[in-house]
Structure formats: structure tokens, C-alpha cells
């Protein structure tokens, strides 16, 4: 039964990956990759149950952290053009 859930998550990941490949804008790709990452977290958790090794949950937790940081970093790069800016929300985007 866990296999069914794994399959469902893999299908969702395939759909997200399709969107990441299709684009058309870079934001679509970031959104898709972010969702792909969230699904990876779930996949690792379910795999831990499937193989009877709950230690996988630690990896899943760490992956959730990395995924979030990664998405924010990519978006900051997109918005400000470099990672060193101390971006406040009132800062205008320089086009």
C-alpha cells in the first residue's frame, strides 16, 4: 500500500518536472522545482516506512530545510541580481 503512495508521489513529481521543463518563464520553473523538492521530502518519508527504516525521516527533515533555503536563494538572485544584497521588502527591484 505504501507502494501506491510512492507511485502517486512519483507521478506528482513527474508532473512538476514536466512544468519545470516546459517553462515558459523562469518563475514557473522555480515554482515547479520547489514543488518537486516538497514532494521529495514526502517521498523520502514514505520510503522510510516502505523499507521499515524510520531513520529516513531525519534525512527528510534536513531535505526540507535545504529545499527552503535553496528556493529562497534562487529567488533572491532573481529579484536582486546578486546574493549579497540585504534585501528588504521595501527595496525597489532594479530592472
Amino acid at each position: 500500500m505504501f507502494i501506491a503512495v510512492t507511485a502517486a508521489i512519483l507521478i506528482t513529481m513527474a508532473l512538476a518536472l514536466t512544468r519545470a521543463l516546459l517553462g515558459p518563464t523562469v518563475y514557473d520553473r522555480v515554482l515547479a522545482v520547489n514543488m518537486f523538492g516538497t514532494k521529495t521530502v514526502l517521498l523520502i518519508a514514505v520510503l522510510g516506512f516502505l523499507t521499515g527504516r524510520p531513520d529516513f525521516l531525519d534525512i527528510s527533515l534536513v531535505y526540507a530545510l535545504i529545499n527552503f533555503i535553496g528556493t529562497i536563494a534562487v529567488l533572491k538572485l532573481l529579484k536582486f541580481g546578486d546574493l549579497g544584497t540585504a534585501g528588504g521588502r521595501d527595496e525597489p527591484a532594479e530592472d
Partner: peptide, 17 residues
């Protein structure tokens, strides 16, 4: 819970497309 969650996850994926 697991099956409903999977279905919703796939609906979300479909929505992304």
C-alpha cells in the same frame, strides 16, 4: 488519509500543468 493525500497531491500536479 494516505490515499486522499495522494489524490490531492496529484490534483495539484495536474493543476501545475
Amino acid at each position: 488519509l494516505l490515499v486522499t493525500g495522494s489524490v490531492f497531491a496529484m490534483i495539484g500536479g495536474l493543476g501545475l500543468i
